[in-house]
Nucleic acid binder design. Structure first.
Length: 482
RNA sequence: GGGAACAUGGCCAAGUGGUAAGGCAGAGGAUUGCAAAUCCUUUACCCCCGGUUCGAAUCCGGGUGUUCCCUCCA
């Protein structure tokens, strides 16, 4: 069995073969740090975090790099608006990024290069492009001469005349940028306007254009060619197309073997985006939704397809997560009862046929939706077993089998970054003690014996309101906390 | 106008030639004083029209619809 990945450049799934056997160099375009991350960012980084986790689980040595773009007009505008420096804006939102994405159990990248730390590398790369006659300086700016790069358009699947004919007047209106020789040329370096922050360069004081930083940082941190380049689908053109032009123009080598792009999050049928203003930030969402619910919501869809963000979808994921989490916590809740030596659980082997099915699913372009279907079957089995135990009924699955199921579920869910939500609603936090609950149960039993069902239901509702569910069994009543 | 994709049950969503995974919601039954708790059972000819094939949700052609990109964007 081998892993296949959908390659945007060829528009088909391809067998994954790393440049260097056993090693995967992976880069994902990070955020421009001028605001809090929204659900669209969450989808992107959860998607590539999951791909990364899977590759590691598959035995690859993965080097995962994700940048912070900390030089940009929007950061500058925000700095002006808030009367502070670009660096202060960047620091604020980099901290915000970590806070939010870590809560979603997105593993830290191996490296988080920043544009401000790579000005020399950027200048070197620009100089190389000028030397190769692929770029030209013009009035303090430097532009990439798109027509000089033969492969331009190969990623996004468009040719120059198509872009020309399709530009619908926008491009040749061109009065705005007289320094360009050709309308499609894009800036590698932009001269600083008076009062703007700048860095010194051979072309004068200025700052890098939008696309060049990724080319420079990939080269600096991972080398000329990497295995997987990921990012949001909205970056295919022009950002990634331009990265290819810059990097391959300079090195003559392929920048990435596989170009992988995640689909957009939609709201009411429209893309969630900052410019449309229809975004929900991760931190706002986390006010009311558990992190793992968001992760499950995202992973239940195939990563390349659009994903609609609706209240109903979140509610569905919330219920789904309860089931899933019941499975994940099974061993913690019942292992001792069942006589498992939990500290020795590492010796329990995952079920090979389940592992096999999981791998087959994930090998097919990280099909987390199909993989989850397999895990849900385990989770449901375990949940049922747990319910049977709580209700004092006989198990229908051998205890040893349950233990293997649980081990398998925990391991494979972990590959998807799904981890049990701790059930630390321990007695006495603020709620009732076990003894107090037992006393109420006794009261209710008496009421039931007296056929005073109004009173008995009142007690039941009162406990329910505090997250305690009563379960009537033939030989008495027990309770469980949510 | 140009480029790229997608279209599966009430909702979400797998499945890329051999009689439709999974989640959510719903229904029926069991249990119960009742029950939102629990257990069991259960719900699809895959946008439309042609074509290829012994056989297609799956391949091809033509429609229709939706989205993304072409401007900052995960």
């Amino acid at each position: 069995m081998s892993l296949v990945i959908y390659n945007t450049q060829t528009r088909q799934k391809e067998t994954f073969t790393p440049i260097e056997p056993g090693t995967v160099k992976m880069y994902c375009c990070g955020v421009t740090v001028y605001d809090h991350c929204h659900l669209g960012h969450a989808r992107s980084y959860i998607t590539w975090d999951t791909a990364r986790r899977y590759l590691i689980w598959r035995g690859y040595d993965v080097q995962y790099v994700q940048n912070f773009t900390d030089i940009d007009d929007k950061i500058l505008n925000r700095a002006i608006a808030e009367d502070c420096t670009m660096a202060e804006v960047s620091e604020t939102y980099i901290a915000s990024y970590f806070e939010d994405l870590r809560r979603l159990n997105v593993k830290d990248a191996d490296d988080y290069p920043r544009v401000t730390d790579h000005i020399p590398q950027i200048c070197d790369l620009i100089q190389t492009l000028i030397d190769r006659d692929l770029a030209y300086a013009s009035g303090g700016d430097v532009y990439y001469a798109v027509q000089k790069f033969p492969g331009y358009g190969k990623l996004s699947g468009r040719s120059e005349d198509q872009m020309q004919s399709g530009a619908s007047g926008r491009v040749d209106a061109g009065s705005g940028e007289p320094k360009k020789r050709h309308p499609f040329d894009f800036a590698l370096w932009k001269a600083a306007k008076p009062g703007e922050p700048f860095w010194e360069s051979p072309w004068g004081q200025g700052r890098p254009g939008w696309h060049i930083e990724c080319s420079a940082m990939i080269r600096s941190r991972l080398g000329d060619s990497i295995d997987i380049h990921g990012g949001g689908g909205d970056l295919v053109f022009p950002h990634h197309e331009n990265e290819i032009a810059q990097s391959e123009g300079a090195t003559g080598k392929p920048l990435a073997t596989y170009w992988a792009h995640n689909g957009m999050v939609r709201v009411n049928g429209e893309k969630m985006s900052k410019s449309l203003g229809n975004f929900t930030t991760i931190r706002d969402l986390l006010e009311t939704v558990e992190p793992m619910v968001i992760r499950l919501f995202i992973l239940q869809a195939q990563y390349r397809k659009p994903l609609d963000f609706t209240d109903e979808a979140i509610a569905s994921a919330t219920s789904g997560w309860q089931t899933f989490n019941d499975g994940l916590t099974f061993g913690d809740r019942f292992g001792a009862t069942l006589g498992w030596a939990l500290d020795a659980s590492a010796t329990v082997e995952p079920l090979p046929e389940v592992v096999d099915k999981f791998q087959t699913a994930m090998d097919d372009d990280f099909n987390s939706s199909a993989a989850l279907a397999i895990l849900f079957e385990l989770a449901k089995d375990l949940r049922r077993a747990g319910n049977l135990l709580v209700h004092g009924e006989a198990l229908t699955t051998p205890v040893d089998e349950l233990r293997h199921q649980w081990t398998t579920l925990v391991e494979l869910a972990g590959v998807l970054g799904l981890v049990a939500t701790s059930t630390t609603a321990t007695a006495g936090d603020e709620g009732l003690t076990d003894a107090a609950i037992e006393a109420l149960i006794a009261q209710r039993q008496q009421a039931r014996a007296d056929r005073n069902f109004a009173e008995s239901d009142r007690i039941r509702d009162e406990l329910k309101a505090q997250g305690i569910t009563l379960i009537d069994k033939p030989d008495g009543t027990v309770f469980v906390r949510d």
